[in-house]
Design a protein around this nucleic acid. Structure first.
Lengths: 154, 154
DNA sequence: TTCTACGTTCAGTAATTTCTGAAGGCACTG
DNA sequence: CAGTGCCTTCAGAAATTACTGAACGTAGAA
């Protein structure tokens, strides 16, 4: 029998999964992606495609797109099992490093777009250039900070 | 006459405003908030409530809620003008510092929620605890990095 | 006081995004 | 070769979020 008592492990687990779902949503990811990540993180095991769909009570279509998203971001790894036709998943080896790198990528993109504006601005409007430059600098500073923090993870 | 020629300042300006609107959306803010921020940043002037609504072609209701959001986050400042009933706005003094602080706040919140889970986890499941702890650490590392980067802004 | 200009609120609408579930295609099995 | 189980795709449904615009309250002007 699984531990479903109040405050028991199962409740902690499902609370965690829901929490991470909401955090993911806050960060602009589909909620299901966050839940899958949390499930793999909490259980720490290799879990099959079907178990994810059933365990989270979501459609296989959703599992398909969410796992691919997580895979693309390097947060989750798809693995095969000999003699098994199903796909299996586990946490990626370095999910947090990849998360940080994804954040940096997003910041670089924003900075790049602002840089485009800067390049289009005439030299004889230094006040505008200054302000746009400051904005670009914001993304640059934050990106650099996060890049450097990657090594602090382990 | 304003410069509306292709590649002219007006076009750069409106492209910039739209770009920042999309960036804001990416970061989970209403698009209009990003546009207002961009307008104030680009023009660098004190702009009235009505001018914002008209200039961006959005309803006064939207201007009201977006400006309040930006005000709450410390990105924009509402100022009065003597003898004027309208509200006026300008960029905040230290918008980027405040942006970074807002990010840190969000990270702290996420870390706190994961910390709650950690506290509920029994000691006899060290493997689970380890994994959840690593996840919390991710938010901690990123938050610290950004906090420290605040001083690099100027 | 009454009038007017203003910002805010909120109910409803619009737009966007997420999720579902059925159809489809592929690969393995027997 | 047919049958089965699997993942993906995609059209549509559901849910969420942003936005509008009218009603409202307030404060200054006349």
């Amino acid at each position: 029998m699984t531990d479903t008592s109040p405050g028991g492990l199962d409740e902690v687990r499902s609370d965690f999964i829901e929490k991470v779902g909401l955090i993911a949503q806050n960060e602009g990811l589909p909620r299901i992606a966050g839940r899958i990540f949390a499930l793999l993180l909490f259980d720490g095991e290799i879990v099959s495609f079907g178990e994810i769909a059933e365990g989270l009570q979501v459609s296989r279509g959703s599992v398909s797109s969410a796992t691919r998203l997580l895979e693309d971001r390097g947060l989750v790894k798809r693995v095969g099992k000999p003699g098994q036709r199903q796909d299996f998943f586990r946490l990626a080896d370095n999910p947090y490093r990849n998360m940080l790198e994804n954040v940096v990528t997003g910041l670089d993109r924003a900075r790049g777009e602002i840089g485009d504006t800067l390049r289009q601005l005439p030299q004889d409007r230094p006040e505008i250039r200054k302000r746009v430059q400051d904005y670009a600098r914001f993304y640059e500073v934050m990106g650099r900070a996060i890049s450097q923090s990657i090594e602090n993870l382990d």
